[in-house]
Computed example of a mutant assay.
Amino acid sequence: MRESLVPVVLMSHTAHIRSHRKPRRNGSTLAMRAGVAGGVLSTLAVAGASGSASAADASTTQTLDLSALTADLATQIAQSADATQQAAANYELQAQRDAAAAAAAQQAKTDLADAKAKAAAKKAADEAARKAAAAEAASRSAERTTLSGATSTSTTVSAPASGSVATVVAFLKAQVGDAYVMGGTGPNSWDCSGLVQAAFKQAGVDLPRVSGDQSTAGTPVSLSNLAVGDILYWGSAGSAYHVGVYIGDGQYLDAANPSKGVVIQDLSGYPATGAVRVL
């Protein structure tokens, strides 16, 4: 049998392996790639510089903003402190005003109570004075009636002062103008019986201290036969409430009351109830 002949192609043993050698690049391609790379690098550089500048600007802006914020905050804190201090001062002032108002109200209440009490006391005193004046007026009226009955048949006689009587009268007249003081026995203030007792002591006569006892210390005499130096009394004998000494010419001298003191008065203005003679 006839064998067919197949042509055999002889290949190198390395023909199926790609060459490990890099293809050769021409100069223009390299140049272009270098240019592109350079542009990218330039762009990155510009971008980096721009970013750095922007970061610097941002940092500066942040620094400026922070300084302004700090100053603003300090101002606000100061204003807040001032406001707090002012509020505290206002509160204290208001508290002081409230306390003063409360004190004034309390004082006004106290003053009003005092005024009412004084008004009530004055009213009571006025009423008592009115009643006393009415009683005194009634007493004087009764005494005038008695004196009128006693003098209707005779005339009051004035005897001249002589001897020890003159001493009594001189002492009494020397005390005119002195003050009246209840319980007073001199030398510058007297009550009625204290003055009469001291006057008669100048003449060596010791009289009792009070009016009631002095009204019975001597010989009773009629009011129509009075003599200088006779002791006059008002009220009942033994319980008289006032005494004086007759000094002649229808007058008598006594320590009258706190408003008059020691004075000389007309007997007709305040007639006595009776009289006694000691000298």
Rank of each mutant, 00 (worst) to 15 (best):
7 P>W: 07
7 P>D: 13
8 V>P: 01
8 V>T: 13
8 V>A: 13
8 V>C: 10
15 A>C: 04
15 A>L: 08
21 R>A: 12
24 R>A: 14
25 R>H: 13
25 R>P: 05
28 S>K: 09
28 S>P: 00
30 L>S: 15
32 M>P: 00
32 M>Y: 12
34 A>Q: 10
40 V>Y: 06
43 T>N: 12
47 A>I: 09
49 A>F: 13
56 A>R: 12
56 A>S: 15
56 A>H: 11
59 S>R: 09
61 T>W: 08
65 D>T: 14
68 A>R: 10
74 A>F: 07
75 T>C: 13
75 T>R: 13
76 Q>S: 15
78 A>I: 04
79 Q>S: 15
82 D>Y: 00
84 T>S: 15
86 Q>W: 00
89 A>E: 12
89 A>W: 02
89 A>L: 11
92 E>C: 09
96 Q>I: 07
96 Q>K: 09
99 A>F: 06
102 A>G: 06
102 A>F: 02
103 A>C: 06
104 A>V: 09
106 Q>M: 05
107 Q>I: 10
110 T>K: 10
110 T>G: 12
111 D>N: 14
111 D>A: 15
111 D>H: 08
112 L>I: 06
113 A>K: 02
113 A>H: 03
115 A>S: 15
123 K>F: 00
124 A>G: 06
129 A>K: 07
131 K>T: 13
133 A>K: 08
133 A>I: 00
135 A>K: 07
137 A>R: 09
144 R>W: 05
145 T>F: 09
145 T>S: 15
147 L>C: 06
151 T>R: 04
163 G>V: 00
165 V>D: 03
168 V>A: 12
168 V>M: 05
170 A>N: 09
182 M>V: 12
183 G>C: 11
184 G>W: 02
185 T>V: 10
186 G>C: 06
187 P>L: 07
189 S>V: 06
189 S>G: 13
193 S>R: 02
193 S>K: 01
195 L>T: 08
195 L>W: 06
196 V>R: 02
199 A>I: 07
199 A>M: 00
202 Q>S: 11
212 G>Y: 05
212 G>L: 05
218 G>D: 04
219 T>Y: 03
219 T>E: 10
219 T>A: 11
220 P>A: 11
220 P>C: 02
222 S>M: 05
227 A>H: 04
229 G>D: 04
232 L>C: 07
234 W>L: 08
238 G>M: 04
238 G>Q: 01
239 S>N: 10
240 A>Q: 05
243 V>I: 02
243 V>W: 00
249 D>N: 15
250 G>Y: 02
253 L>A: 09
254 D>F: 00
255 A>M: 05
256 A>E: 10
256 A>G: 07
261 G>A: 11
262 V>N: 04
266 D>H: 14
267 L>C: 09
269 G>E: 12
269 G>F: 01
271 P>Q: 05
274 G>I: 03
276 V>I: 07
277 R>M: 02
278 V>G: 07
